[in-house]
Each structure stands twice: as structure tokens, then as C-alpha cells.
Design a protein around this nucleic acid. Structure first.
Lengths: 120, 120
DNA sequence: CGCTTGCTCAACCAAAAGGTTGACAAATCC
DNA sequence: GGATTTGTCAACCTTTTGGTTGAGCAAGCG
């Protein structure tokens, strides 16, 4: 079971919507910190902190060009994460249909997450 | 780009080593909270909190059997996470060799993460 | 019955996360 | 040179996270 300490920081970086959106946009093209911050409903400094988190996780590489900081995606740590997840493939339905269903469902079948009680 | 709010809670659940270890052990067999807690260097209550975090993320299902709480793996949210990650496949080296290398390297090639400076 | 086991709850705590604002530094523009 | 743009730093605040301990409850066991 491959599971470095690095995983902590990678998964944690992925656990915030704003950071995932940054990665998604970096997948299209390189961007400055300001560009990354622009669509986000927060201060530039807050966005800048998110950039730093991604950088610490190794998901973002920064090139300083004058006063602009140009950010690029580094997906390598995502490969590690995917590799870690792959171990559990055997436990989820292999047909992607049912996976797709998880995203499409209208009111969502109310995933009960009910705590069942065994033969009272 | 599929990216539900649920992702926050899943990735966050995965961001702690103890919780990942719990999942790994649940992949082998169902376990009680006490069993999950046993190998961990923390109080039972602390471990119990981790179990709760996994439960909130939908990664763990609990069945109450008398005084014992029996926990089982639910890998479905991991499928969502894997699906999210797959989008970035195109950005990492497809040969698994290099991925394997990332884990095997002895002193690790000191991933510089150096901030480069453009044509001063 | 009374003790032990398995677990949660409540209170508390320190540290980290996520956000703000104001000041400042360094490039670039005019 | 002066103003503007781009981003960081520092201080501060609130909420969440991760841990502790002590109490308590509900099953099971002798």
C-alpha cells in the first residue's frame, strides 16, 4: 500500500473547491495569480494563499516574470493520488454507467447513509 | 468538469493518514470502531471521531450490533474522486513506470520545486 | 445482580485553515 | 520621476480540526 506523507498535503489541497477550480483552469493554460483570483469571490490575498497551498502540494509551479507570477499545473502528484485510489477500484462498480448516474440523478435518490441496526 | 460539493468532504476525509489507514484495513474486512482504533497512536475517542469523518464523507457505513459498531467500507465516493482525477490523466506521464519510480527512489531526487525566474 | 466492555457525549484545548485589511516592494507605464 | 499594477507580508479574526479527559449509557458476562 503506497501511502506517503505527501498524500496528506495533496488530498488536503484538493479538499477546497476554489483550489480545484484553479487546477481546472490551469489545465487550459498558464495563468498569473491575479487571473486565478479573478473569478473567485474572495480577496486577492486569499486566492494567493490558495496558490501557495497548491504550490506546497507540488500541484502548481510558479515562474516569476517581472512583477507577474505565472502559474502552471503540475499534475504529477495527482498521478500519485490516482494511483492510491486505484487500489480501491475493486470495491466500486466497474461499469462507469453507475458512476455517471451518481452525477446525473435529478433529486438524487436520497443516499440515506442510514445507520442500520442488526437484529434487535 | 464534474465537481460536486461532496468532493470537499471526500478529499478532506482522505487528507489524514489515520483515516486512510482505516480505509485500507476496512478493505480487508469489516471492523468495529475499537478494532479500527487499536493500531492508532491515539485515544479511542479520537479514532471514533475519524470514523465519524469517514462516515460523513460516505466512505464508511456503520451497522450497530448490540454495543459494537461494525464498520464497512463504502468505496463509491472514491469512484467519484477517481473520476475527478481522471480528467488530469492527460497531464501526467502515462507510463506507470515513472509513476512507480516516484515511490521507489532511494534518497528521492530532491524534487526542487524551485521557483524559476524568467530571463532576468 | 454487579462488573466489564464498547462506544458516544460534552467540555475543553492548541493548532491550523480560511478569510480580512493595511502597508509595502518591485516592475512597468506615461 | 511619479503613478499604477501585481503580488507579498504582517497582523488579526473566526471557524474547523485533531486531540485530550471524564462522565455516562447500553449490552453482555459472571
Amino acid at each position: 500500500m503506497v501511502d506517503g506523507l505527501e498524500m496528506d498535503v495533496v488530498f488536503q489541497a484538493l479538499s477546497h473547491r476554489a483550489r480545484r477550480e484553479m487546477l481546472a483552469r490551469l489545465a487550459e493554460r498558464e495563468m498569473t495569480v491575479g487571473e486565478l483570483a479573478e473569478p473567485l469571490a474572495m480577496s486577492l490575498e486569499a486566492a494567493s494563499k490558495h496558490v501557495r497551498v497548491l504550490e506546497r502540494a507540488g500541484l502548481l509551479r510558479r515562474t516569476i516574470d517581472g512583477r507577474r507570477h505565472i502559474c502552471g499545473l503540475d499534475a504529477a502528484p495527482l498521478a500519485s493520488a490516482a494511483h492510491w485510489l486505484r487500489f480501491y477500484e475493486r470495491f466500486w462498480p466497474e461499469r462507469l454507467d453507475s458512476l455517471a448516474a451518481m452525477f446525473d440523478k435529478k433529486p438524487a435518490p436520497k443516499t440515506g447513509h442510514k445507520t442500520t441496526r442488526r437484529k434487535k
